[in-house]
Amino acid sequence: MIELYHIWKQYQRPHWALSDITLKIEKGDFCFVTGPSGSGKTTLLKIIFRESFPTQGQIIIDNRNILKIPNHKIYLLRRKMGIVFQDFRLLFHKKVFDNVAIVLNILGTPRKKVRRRVFNALRMVNLHNKMWEYPSHLSYGEQQRVAIARAVVNNPDIILADEPTGNLDTELAFEIMSLFKEINRQGTTVIICTHDRELIRNFGQKILFLYKGKLLRKESL
């Protein structure tokens, strides 16, 4: 369960990237965050996985105030999460396989298991045939799917996906959403930032509208 209490975030005066956000995301939720460009969606996610600290406010995840977790323990929080970054953050000097395997190697997963799970994750996003390519040889949409595979490979408790279908055609976007939905059915909390009204209409359960850093509406369908 993710709870945000009166979160304010300012990068530069006088603009507030987030202002007074209070919300609760239950375990097992399938949740969309939407709003115009620059409304603070990415900032909200960054605060949840503590890449970024709020200027004010508190965040509780699984009954722990994550702002109070010391730096050397933060890896425990991150291991619960699978993150799809808006800018992918793939390593271009490593093959697709190794990009995805990173998440498992960190945990000291045995080689064989790594191979199997990376293959499965890549097959879910229909990229298993490009496993030994370098990301630079892939299209934007394919790179995005590598990023998605990396986020789901470890069966995380929480998936944070920032515009995960931004570069995909409608058909593929629906496929990816179905994948997230399937993962969600197994108990994983999924939070997706998107502009895509079509997707929200078809998959939305809980929708958070951000506008200029303010939480405008919370909607449950």
Binding site: F49, E51, H72, Y75, L76, L77, R78, R79, M81, I83, R89, L91, I102, V103, I106, L107, R150
Partner: peptide, 16 residues
């Protein structure tokens, strides 16, 4: 540093 960043964000310990 990209690699270090992704390792940190995926839950790699500082030691690792």
């Amino acid at each position: 540093k990209d690699e270090i960043e992704i390792l940190q964000l995926s839950g790699g310990t500082n030691m690792f």
